[in-house]
Design a protein around this nucleic acid. Structure first.
Lengths: 234, 234, 234, 234
DNA sequence: CATGAATGAGTGTTCATTCAT
DNA sequence: GATGAATGAACACTCATTCAT
């Protein structure tokens, strides 16, 4: 019965990871105890240890899930036509994902993972397996855009990729702290900042959590006038 | 012996905090034990507990020091002539401070504090006492600049302040992870992004960690390509 | 496995309480450490803390057991026919219980509980839940006896109840100190003191630790001189 | 300067012991810390350790003071004319001393000493140096009274002495617990109980805390009618 | 003599992990 | 597979005692 057994195993892992996410998000990795997770997941310690050899491995599994989810945003964005639009698309998909309360809770946990990565090489490796390709793909997108003239040649692609990542990370952090930051206003500001270096916008396809849907270009107060700023080409 | 005693007391607090910073930066708040701090600081547990009633209070003291240091950047920047220049100045002072290895180590710890703040209201309060005024001062600076025409009216001041903060925080995080990010290249990119909304630049006075020094205006064009050489292939 | 589990749980509590009684009786509440109790009871700290959330709760449990045992004496005595006989009966049951070495050891601990009660309101409450009803029942017995003419009307019932209690307590204390006080001689003396106020004695049924047994009335004259032989020179 | 030095030494010991009594009475021997005593007595730890080599020695000194005070009651009573009156006198002096709040506080501490004596042979020895002679003197008083016919021959002198002591100790304990027991009512009850075995009462001289004063015999309801109980001579 | 900062062994308690059932 | 009682090393913290000043 390898099928039933495997299904069961996956279901149990899910149950454990979900309980752990709840506990870790509430109390942090170190303050949440295995007993807490048992209680939350209606499981016995023995049951958990059958699926995860140590508490650390649950943390690792959670970090791994994060990294897999992350890879989706950039991948979906690259499929879009032009590089400049792909960047816009990536930003929108990312920020809008934070409207989902479940994602918000997971992100809160993410901050904990950031700190954990500093002490735990396995977590660090996992994190970088998620981030480094995104960073490189973004830099590559910029380089492509620069060659085609879509993106200003003034930008150092690597640093710009880091800056984009920073705008994501800083937002996650601030939202974890404040809880109620206006996503749309922040996204508009980010688009304004990049409007000077990203030369055009065409109709795009939005890829959100729930699937793919078409969308007309959003012309918003914040982003449009930026186009006509004095030294727009910089 | 009140005078000697007070000096001594301050020296001891410093000794303990320094030892704690070393231990916390190495192992994290939760993995570092009081015994570790004792060993690091060449002190007995009793000695530490004479100065700090609990481990948590050491963490708090460290967070407090961070917050006080932070306040300096924005304060120094506001003293500078125009709002646009004040923003530039603030960014430069901040990013350059990260060239100091000691500051780098402290920032690493800062990431831990970010996570800790999510569970510990006292730390959260301390953090916000450092960040909220900076955020407000930055937004105010932008509003002032918008009135005088120095800063594009397209920007939502609050969101822009958040974005600036995010660019700082994300950089801190990435530097904590990667260790060797090129500060100047990142700074140049940030300045490029803001060049479209910050209209003019005049000679400024840089206030860094080590004191005050004059500096000619930095021309973007000159610095960005120089950075290109590094890590170019992504 | 609820039935087995409950039996097991009770057995464990017993094991812990017994180990604790041994340790506390030997070293006192404060000098006896949890490690001592672990060693004595062949248990790990974790095992103990599964059954008692804190050391204090073990002390409390011991005090509670005392109080429950105590309630037995007065309850059993009240069942006896006349009030005067009930008082005699109560005294005998109580003092004779002190012939049991295990009870002697527990009483030794009782002295510690007396002191503990002075600082610990929970222990004080427990103690009074045991003593106050006894005091009141005794006073009530005296009042009843006074109405029926069995007990001298001269006695203030409340103070007399206190005096009876004092005769018990003082004896417990002295026996804890000296270890080998002649219970029968003391009991005879107490009965002599009360013979003037307790007017009659009828055949009674003694309820001791081990069960119920019939006993002919004890004539004071017969028992007191027999004790004289012991320790005569003072 | 041996005189000044000795005075100083005694004054310091007093200061320390007083502070310790306050602290021990409030928190118990084990919960009161040396720091508490320092604070209470406005002294440094070093100063205390110059006069007492260990915390235990302070406890010992306090127990020693108790024992010396105790000896006074019995000594003063023996000076009185007849043995029966001497016993009455002793009881009155003792119980009335408990009206003094300072003595009440010290007695509270006494309960702690009782428990401490069970673990600490030095304290036990000290305690018995105070109690044993009293017990023997009381028994001797009874024997003398029995020879002269003042005291009923039915009483075992040693057990009776213990019973008298028990009536004291039990009262101390109950007063420590309840705080507000009626001393006079209790004393009257005790005298009633003994009225059957103590045959006469003559004018006595009361020796209290504050000195010596004359007093007419107190004929109280509680003690007189007891004389006419049926089997009074027993 | 006095101070009070410092010591460090020891305390009660926790919790990741194991394993008999 | 699952349970949950048990383990025991490790933790934060205390406090009687010492000793340089």
């Amino acid at each position: 019965m390898p099928k039933v057994s495997q299904d069961h195993q996956l279901a149990r892992r899910r149950q454990i990871i979900d309980a752990a996410i709840t506990c870790f998000a509430r109390d942090g990795f170190h303050r949440a105890t295995m007993q807490d997770i048992c209680r939350e997941g209606q499981l016995s310690p023995g049951a958990i240890y059958r699926y995860f050899p140590a508490k650390e491995d649950i943390i690792e599994a959670i970090a791994r899930e994060r990294h897999e989810r992350e890879a989706g945003y950039i991948g979906a964005a690259i499929a879009v036509a032009g590089p400049a639009d792909a960047l816009r698309q990536m930003g929108r998909a990312f920020f809008r994902s934070l409207d989902d309360p479940a994602e918000k809770r997971r992100r809160r946990l993410g901050v904990e993972v950031w700190a954990e990565a500093l002490r735990n090489p396995k977590i660090m490796a996992l994190l970088r397996r998620g981030i480094d390709p995104s960073l490189q793909a973004t830099a590559e997108l910029i380089r492509t855009g620069q060659k085609s003239g879509d993106i200003s040649a003034d930008l150092d692609p690597d640093s710009a990729a880091r800056a984009i990542l920073a705008l994501f990370q800083g937002f996650i952090l601030q939202q974890a702290w404040y809880g109620d930051i206006d996503v749309e206003a922040y996204l508009a500001t980010v688009e304004t900042l990049f409007s000077a270096v990203l030369h055009e916008e065409r109709p795009v396809t939005i890829v959100g959590e729930g699937g793919v849907r078409s969308k007309p270009p959003r012309r918003r107060k914040a982003s449009v006038p930026a186009q006509r700023s004095k030294d727009g080409g910089a």
